[in-house]
């Protein structure tokens, strides 16, 4: 989510709420005989408010499970999640008087810190990564389709190489006929020149097929494979440049296509990595959040009852 000017109302509202909470906390903290405590009226108020904010933030997951339900736009829920979640931290700190307390509450506070920090990290990732991804990956596709697209790229590469080799071999057979004609009319010397050219074409054709089997196909068929030579742009450029020297100009467009295929594969790999980063943090944030809510509820019961 891009945190931009459209968040202004939320920012202002949260800032005002924080300012008010702080303005109330400071005199309370200074005047409380035994210092600010979670069990005091104000402390409880902060605690309840903070927990309610956390609960609301936690409900975002449920909201996403039923996207069609008309219970407020998902965008509003997300912004609420972000700003209420942000506000909940100072409120909980005010609730505890900046003390972490006993075993349960200490565990709870550290859990909360991890959830809160991972949330901020996630917000930052969601703010910066989409732009980065859009700029870096013009060839991106749907993440779940990456394997399929990779398979298609491998197939396409195979077809292109075959087409190039056939064109070379066609040239070979045409040249063979020319060679026979030249040998018959012009003598052995002319024949030798064409013959050496023929051999060169055949060698290039073989080299290209070898390149496909040993370099391209393994690279295209494997996810990741950054360590392979084609996984690095400069190395790949050098390899294709060598083929450009060997192949006639009319076949360079095929080489360009092969190079683009490798570039697309690199972008898909990058997309895969970025996607995991962009969504991977949720694997930390979500379970910890549920644990936080559960333990928070336990703490509330224990603290109030006993």
């Amino acid at each position: 989510m891009l945190i931009d000017r459209t968040h202004r109302k939320w920012f202002v509202g949260s800032a005002v709420a924080l300012a008010v909470a702080t303005a109330v906390y400071i005199p309370y903290a200074l005047r409380a005989p035994q210092g600010p405590r979670g069990g005091s009226a104000l402390g409880l108020t902060y605690g309840i408010a903070g927990f309610l904010f956390m609960l609301f933030a936690g409900l975002l997951g449920l909201r996403k499970k039923f996207p069609v339900w008309r219970i407020g736009r998902a965008q509003s829920w997300m912004r609420g999640h972000l700003w209420f979640g942000l506000l909940s931290f100072p409120l909980i700190l005010f609730h505890g008087g900046f003390h972490f307390g006993g075993t349960l509450t200490r565990m709870l506070m550290w859990l909360f810190v991890f959830v809160w920090v991972s949330g901020i990290l996630g917000a930052a990732l969601q703010h910066f990564m989409p732009r980065f991804q859009t700029a870096q990956l013009p060839m991106e596709t749907i993440y779940e389709q990456i394997d399929r697209v990779r398979g298609q790229l491998a197939e396409e590469a195979g077809q292109l190489v075959e087409e190039t080799c056939s064109a070379l071999e066609g040239e070979v057979s045409r040249a063979s006929e020319r060679q026979r004609a030249m040998s018959a009319s012009a003598g052995t010397q002319g024949g030798l020149t064409v013959a050496s050219g023929l051999q060169a074409n055949q060698q290039v054709s073989t080299q290209l097929r070898q390149f496909l089997d040993e370099e391209m196909r393994p690279y295209l068929e494997r996810a990741g494979a950054h360590a392979m030579r084609l996984g690095q742009t400069t190395q790949a450029q050098k390899m294709f440049q060598q083929f450009r020297v060997l192949l006639p100009p009319e076949l360079h467009s095929n080489l360009d296509d092969l190079e683009n295929i490798c570039e697309e594969k690199r972008q898909l790999d990058k997309q895969s990595r970025l996607h995991k980063i962009l969504h991977g943090w949720l694997l930390v944030h979500i379970p910890l959040s549920y644990a936080l809510l559960l333990l928070g509820a336990v703490h509330a019961v224990v603290a109030l009852k006993f």
Partner: peptide, 18 residues
Amino acid sequence: DLEKCTRCDQCVRACADA
């Protein structure tokens, strides 16, 4: 808007759900 979209596919899920 690809600069805001996190590729979460909520739009597709919502359409299918609907």
